[in-house]
């Protein structure tokens, strides 16, 4: 499952960053590593970016869908929505 596919409010752990060197560098620069836990706060309208909370760093990051589709995750807590 990728970050784009999970529901708003769900908490997930990053399992794999499946992209090239520059993608990995970029996303890790924002503190998202394999093993990081994130909460998907919101998906922007008109196929806009995702608003993600990096739980360990207590930071919020917006990630475009293209990039988020390369982040493989496993849902830890799902929230009914």
């Amino acid at each position: 499952m990728t970050l784009v596919e999970i529901k708003e409010g769900n908490v997930a752990e990053i399992k794999k960053l499946s992209g090239g060197r520059s993608f990995i560098e970029k996303i890790q620069g924002f503190g998202l590593f394999v093993g990081s836990k994130v909460r998907l706060e919101r998906k922007a309208p008109f196929r806009g970016p995702l608003l993600v909370e990096d739980i360990e760093n207590d930071a919020r990051i917006m990630i475009g869908r293209g990039m988020a589709a390369k982040v493989e995750v496993e849902v830890l807590e799902s929230k009914k929505s």
């Binding site: 970016p49 608003l51 990051i61 917006m62 990630i63 475009g64």
Partner: peptide
């Protein structure tokens, strides 16, 4: 190819 947006939301 567009790498897409990624930015902090302070």
């Amino acid at each position: 190819a567009d790498p897409g947006i990624i930015m902090d939301v302070p």
